[in-house]
């Protein structure tokens, strides 16, 4: 078993609001090992983006990490000073975002921005920095990187911009990459290119990836392990093949059914009724219970804990294993 790069333990990220304290991330434990990809699936409002910002130490105020640990190779990131965190961020832990146009500075060249990322962590000569930046562009398969180095973001297509973002993130050779919906804004043919690129780069560098997405198809293609989030909690966690063959949590099953498939012709999609509850109006008991077709009286009273079904498969549901209870 390879080394654990990131180990999140009982993480709670809270916001104090007029409606009381909101826990956007509510007691999450997850880990990811070297060379593997953890896919985090959830819809908007599930807390998946707040989870990644918590790991990066970028929780926007008035939010704060209220409980728990984020262990990066044994070091608790929640205990680090701002300066220590800056040393790690972009260097050992990197992040790419959904929208490549808003994450790149339009008034600087691509090359300048990559060097900027590099210079924050390395003391080297300008010539050497430029070499490394061009090498980073070449790594993400950008054709004629020497020419692209001097171009501005608006001169690049969406797919190229996302490649530049990846080059910037990987230029310091991090061992953890957090990719927050990296392909959502891209067209499907470009998405396929980017996913393939991430897979290849992982094979080359052995970095661990946390991939945040709402698209189960993307997860099926790149993740090794999957965590399904709902309303701030992980409701199911398993290796990717288990999730697609033997989903146990009703929410996971509902998501699978909601996804239109090309290899199938069904008259109606198995949709989930209702909507995700806002964080200040969470139902008592299991948070999914108002939408769950298998709901029982116990579900409305007490919240189920994430419990192991097998060594690798954990579910937070009173009805698991499903066939035995319904």
């Amino acid at each position: 078993m390879s080394e654990t790069i990131l180990d999140i333990r009982g993480l709670v990220t809270a916001f104090n609001t007029r409606n009381g304290a909101i826990r956007a991330v509510d007691g999450i434990s997850l880990s990811v090992r070297k060379g593997t990809t953890l896919g985090i699936v959830g819809e908007s409002g599930s807390g998946k983006s707040m989870l990644s910002l918590s790991v990066m130490g970028l929780v926007p105020p008035p939010g704060r990490i209220a409980e728990g640990q984020v262990l990066y190779r044994g070091t608790d990131l929640t205990k680090l000073s701002a300066a220590q965190m800056r040393d790690l961020r972009g260097n050992r832990i990197a992040m790419i975002f959904q929208e490549p146009m808003t994450s790149l500075n339009p008034v600087h060249t691509v090359g300048f921005q990559i060097i900027e990322a590099l210079r924050a962590h390395r003391k080297e000569s300008p010539a050497r920095l430029k070499e490394e930046a061009i090498e980073a562009l070449r790594k993400v398969r950008i054709p004629s990187p020497e020419r692209r180095f001097d171009e501005y973001p608006h001169q690049l297509s969406g797919g190229m911009r996302q490649r530049v973002m990846i080059a910037m993130a990987l230029v310091c050779k991090p061992d953890l990459l957090i990719a927050d919906e990296p392909t959502t804004a891209l067209d499907v043919t470009i998405q396929a290119q980017i996913l393939e690129l991430l897979r290849e780069l992982q094979a080359e560098t052995g970095m661990a990836i946390i991939l945040i997405t709402h698209d189960l198809g993307v997860v099926a293609q790149v993740a090794d392990e999957v965590a399904v989030m709902y309303a701030g909690k992980v409701v199911e966690r398993a290796p990717v093949s288990r999730i697609f063959q033997d989903p146990q949590h009703p929410y996971t099953i509902g998501l699978m059914g909601s996804m239109p498939r090309m290899e199938e012709d069904v008259d109606r999609l198995v949709s989930i009724s209702g909507v995700v509850p806002p964080p200040f109006r969470l139902p008592p008991g299991c948070r999914f219970n108002p939408r769950c077709p298998f709901v029982g009286s116990e579900c409305r009273v007490e919240q189920p804990a994430l419990a192991a079904m097998t060594d690798t498969h954990a579910v937070a549901c009173w009805k698991a294993p499903l066939e035995e209870h319904v």
């Binding site: 043919t189 396929a192 099926a220 293609q221 697609f244 699978m256 498939r261 090309m262």
Partner: peptide, 25 residues
């Protein structure tokens, strides 16, 4: 064909199937 091939398939057992189209629009 390329559009159909590029859509990520919700089946982890068939990963190699995803072929991407080179280049940009």
């Amino acid at each position: 064909q390329a559009l159909l091939a590029a859509a990520p398939e919700p089946d982890p057992s068939r990963r190699t199937a995803m072929k991407s189209l080179g280049g940009d629009l």
